[in-house]
Design a binder for these strands. Sequence first.
DNA 1: TTATTTTTTGGCATAATACCAAACTTTTAG
DNA 2: CTAAAAGTTTGGTATTATGCCAAAAAATAA
Lengths: 162, 162
Amino acid sequence: MTENKSKNVEISGLELSPRKVSYLKFLLTKGETVRTTEISEAFDVDPSTVTKLIAELADDGYLDHIPYRGVTLTEAGKVYAEFCLKRHQILGLMFSHYGLTPDESCDETSRIETFVSKKAVDRMCSSMGHPTISCCVKPGEARQINHDSCFHESRPNLIKKL
Amino acid sequence: MTENKSKNVEISGLELSPRKVSYLKFLLTKGETVRTTEISEAFDVDPSTVTKLIAELADDGYLDHIPYRGVTLTEAGKVYAEFCLKRHQILGLMFSHYGLTPDESCDETSRIETFVSKKAVDRMCSSMGHPTISCCVKPGEARQINHDSCFHESRPNLIKKL
DNA sequence: TTATTTTTTGGCATAATACCAAACTTTTAG
DNA sequence: CTAAAAGTTTGGTATTATGCCAAAAAATAA
């Protein structure tokens, strides 16, 4: 936990490509070990494409891959995926503030999210009062916004770097 | 004028790559004919890289290129560049609403703008009351937000498709 | 344990960018 | 008015991110 936090500080939010972010978010919502085929079907791509991307994600420490068996998120991968999910939710919420429908917010967010820094997301999250709803997650639904990764600028001494 | 408006309707906002959008915005703010070197210096890339991108933009009708002389925006190019500039400004303003500094807003916007649709921008613009300030343009400065390209959803009969 | 299914490998392709060196043009200096 | 300098374009190559296909390998089912 304390370890995650300290690792968190190093997340810029720009380290992964769009597809990789999608895979990580998918893996997080799945929870358990996920087979190559599940991913390839979810994203409608060839299984070999998935094999290659997960190999890179595994190399970079985001997930463990047992060949022919499946993948699971590493601790770092979970932390990163949580951040990605939260970023998606914060951005989706932001768009919805300007009259976009939930679907539109989600679409626009999906195209831009990989390019928005964690610093910006944290700032926005604070500014919004650490919301728990978003275009994809409503109160009462299973997964709400997880603020663990949030760098609380307003209380630097309490949480910064820890 | 009427012609531009009708062409506008067909802009999705996603037709150009990041670099091409940057070039178009640069060309619009420059106004006159621009030489390859000016662009290559502005973006700190090799002149040959510029030659290639402008060839593609010219092919697609965004600009006229006279070899060894320079490029100018076509009418369609101007219309598109105006939209790009406005999109940048609307998005920058949006980020600034969530506590990002002007510089931060501008940075984040620069990374995401190419992936935000015109439909979303128009909606946001309406929702904001068609503002004239942004992270990059303050009131009193030369270029303010140009709303010509805006699809005014609130007054569809007056402006839609015309 | 063979047939079927799943996964991985290796090869190849495209879009977006970018660099370099060589070939051209245009401009400038004599 | 030409030769050198400066600017531009071509052609070749590279990288990153993705993705497909066919063949090989492993796992599972019959």
